[in-house]
Write a protein that binds this DNA or RNA. Structure first.
Lengths: 283, 283
DNA sequence: CACTATATATCGCAT
DNA sequence: ATGCGATGTATAGTG
């Protein structure tokens, strides 16, 4: 059995359930009215409210309200979870050291307590990252500029690792800094630190070019680059080509099945199914 | 009733349950074996595996495995959730525009499907942030340096807003950049951009000091500050005082109750409750 | 460990 | 809406 759930348990029953789930290294959810107390890198207090608490066997804990992607309180992996009864109520505590941190969840009411056995997993495959952009440029350096020749990636400098180090058609050293999305002043400064480091390394007589590569750039960052004598090249990380300036006809329609709709909008009438097709339903 | 749960529902029953929950604007969890398909700012595919999916009425969606604090797939608030049956199986889709993104979760098996009504809430109170550090300095400017006088916070400059702008004892303009935690080269560059902006504003004849305030600084950032003629002052955001250099006796013990323990370590025997004992215990 | 940089960062605030 | 910086950022990679 993969899932084990208690509905409106007593605090003591929830405790027993939790401890068994800890033992099995299950993923756990607890929903109920609770307060949260955190002390560590910062300090926070969260008054009573209805929240979903998620405990993972790797020692992470998340406290979610019904808003936002970010949990209202949390602890990253590496904590030790414990549960106990305080004043007759369930308390979940998560502790770690380095940094020394503690997160307490005190439940006034436990509505549901579930333990999930996670046995099966696959890894995520993601594209469109900075690494993809780099591969595009290494595979076809002329998309950066004609005659550009990459010499080294992650080249160490006094200011840190340089994304791509190379030479232009005139054999002038070039520092290339890659960003997968629109860049602001921080990226321009980062490029400048690398270029400065190479100036110190090569001597001020040797010219060094710096090129920031991203799909687009803010005005302030463009001004900053100008003042510093640095350059910008617009490339899309997904395609490795110059991004479309002002989009127009971009039809990728392919949706040929209707779907049951809901959410903030449309009314739902339990319709929208589109099944029958294939069994394999259960199991 | 706050919680509504289906155990091992058929895909169709899960759909009905979900659509009702959408209608009520409940927070929803679905646990089961699924694949995830994402296309938007980046693109990703996640093969079959056991995951916990969380849907919030504000349009966020989280797909969690039993590891890490960060969901393996997600969408921030603003999406429109929908559910349907495809090939006899439950599919949850989350869509938004600007940027145009889509997240699909295809379930091979639904183990549990819960809807939680969240009616009650309190706001988080947090201390130890950069804002706290600023308050400490404004309340007692001499902790920064004797004779320092704050003149303006969030002062606008060509390079963005300056945390604290003031004058030293000699009426020399001072740019203060605050960080709540240990700073690296990026913070030094940020400070430099602000100082440069004021140089452009005041003219190069007018001296402008730049002070970076944080609990500590990395060697590389310290070198960078040195080269730029900028300064560093060590202050703790929580206390507003110089942080303890090399800790020693720092006894804050107060834990006088044993607690039921579990997690990565100790074995649990459903013991460890410790109730009734003493009131006034935690608080 | 500390240091550095990335991220589908998210989030909040100001323009 | 976009720009910009803070975040208890989390996370990965490297020395």
């Amino acid at each position: 059995m993969t899932v084990n759930t208690l509905h409106r348990p007593t605090h003591r029953d929830a405790l027993v359930h939790l401890e068994a789930a800890f033992e099995r290294e299950d993923m756990i959810t607890v929903f109920g009215r609770c307060t949260v107390d955190y002390d560590g890198r910062a300090t926070s207090e969260l008054g009573p409210g209805d929240r979903l608490v998620i405990l993972k066997p790797d020692g992470s804990i998340l406290v979610h309200t019904d808003e936002k992607r970010t949990p209202v309180n949390w602890q990253p992996p590496g904590c030790t979870h414990s549960a106990s009864i305080r004043d007759g109520r369930l308390r979940i505590r998560s502790r770690r050291s380095n940094p020394d941190e503690r997160l307490d969840v005190h439940f006034e009411r436990v509505d549901q307590c579930s333990a999930y056995g996670v046995n099966d997993r696959s890894d995520l495959e993601l594209t469109g990252s900075e690494e993809d952009l780099r591969q595009h440029i290494l595979a076809n350096p002329s998309i950066l500029e004609p005659g550009f020749e990459p010499l080294e990636t992650e080249r160490q400098s006094d200011a840190g690792p340089i994304d791509i180090f190379g030479e232009d058609a005139d054999e002038v050293p070039v520092v290339v800094e890659l960003k997968r999305r629109r860049v602001g002043p921080a990226a321009a400064s980062q490029l400048r630190r690398y270029v400065d480091a190479l100036h110190r390394e090569f001597g001020d007589d040797e010219p060094v070019r710096g090129i920031l590569v991203a799909p687009s750039i803010t005005d302030r960052a463009a001004d900053l680059l100008d003042r510093e004598g640095l350059e910008f090249v617009a490339l899309d990380p997904e395609t490795g080509a110059p991004p479309v300036e002002d989009g127009s006809a971009e039809d990728d329609g392919g949706e040929d099945e209707t779907s049951g709709e809901s959410g903030s909008d449309g009314q739902s009438e339990t319709s929208g199914e589109n099944e029958s097709d294939d069994p394999t339903a259960d199991e």
